[in-house]
Amino acid sequence: MITFLLRALLYVASAGVGLIVADLLLEGFRIQWARWWGFALCIVIFAVLQSILSPLITRVTDRYAPALIGGIGIISTLIALLIVVLLPLGGLRIVDATGWILGAVIVWVVTALGTVLLGRVFLRPRPSAERARRDR
């Protein structure tokens, strides 16, 4: 249970970093820092949506459009961004096509890298578990 919560926390943190990086790199991708609570809520909602949409889109794509299976992460990121921007929370605005397209790619890449790298740092196997695997 603790590992699950730690993974969820790491995913939310990497999603937040991805959104901030997109804000720093793109003119059309704007975090409304005056509404910091809205942005914090956007991060949580984005992470939850992303974790729900990815398996759902995988099933639909596998069934109806197998050629798109490689772009699942970017597609689910784009849909999650669309939903978060449309919510009346404030905190995040995307105003042009470059912000939408490159923003989705940047958020997807940073979130994926952040999840993998932070997971390797914080979710290392215990020495006893590692020893048990080697002894098999």
Rank of each mutant, 00 (worst) to 15 (best):
L10A: 09
I57G: 00
V121K: 05
L117H: 09
I43H: 03
G38E: 06
L19M: 11
L102D: 10
A47P: 08
V21G: 03
R63M: 12
R126H: 13
G103I: 14
A15S: 05
A22H: 04
V60S: 08
G114I: 09
W33Q: 08
R136L: 02
T58G: 07
T77D: 06
I69Y: 07
L53V: 03
L123C: 12
A8F: 15
L92Y: 03
S51V: 00
I75L: 15
G99S: 06
I79A: 11
F4R: 12
G71V: 08
L82D: 00
G119H: 14
G71R: 08
A65S: 13
V17T: 07
I72H: 00
I83F: 15
V95R: 10
R35V: 09
P125N: 12
G28W: 02
G103N: 09
L86V: 08
A97M: 12
V44R: 00
V48N: 00
V12L: 13
L19Y: 04
S51W: 01
L81K: 05
V110I: 15
R93A: 14
T111E: 14
G70E: 02
S76E: 04
L49D: 10
L49H: 10
R124I: 08
P127I: 06
F122T: 11
V85N: 12
R124V: 11
V17K: 02
G28P: 11
L10Y: 02
A67V: 04
I72R: 07
I2D: 14
L41F: 04
W37Y: 01
D135V: 09
A47K: 09
L89W: 12
I74H: 02
Q32M: 07
V107K: 07
A65D: 07
L86F: 12
L56D: 04
A132R: 15
L113Y: 09
V60I: 15
L25H: 09
S54N: 04
R120A: 12
I74G: 02
V85W: 09
F39M: 05
T98V: 10
S128F: 11
L53E: 01
A15W: 00
F122D: 07
L82M: 13
G71Y: 08
R133K: 14
L118K: 13
F122L: 12
I106T: 10
L53T: 03
I20D: 03
R134H: 12
A80G: 12
D135P: 01
S51Y: 05
L92A: 04
S76C: 03
P66M: 10
G90H: 05
A40T: 11
W100G: 10
S76I: 03
T111S: 15
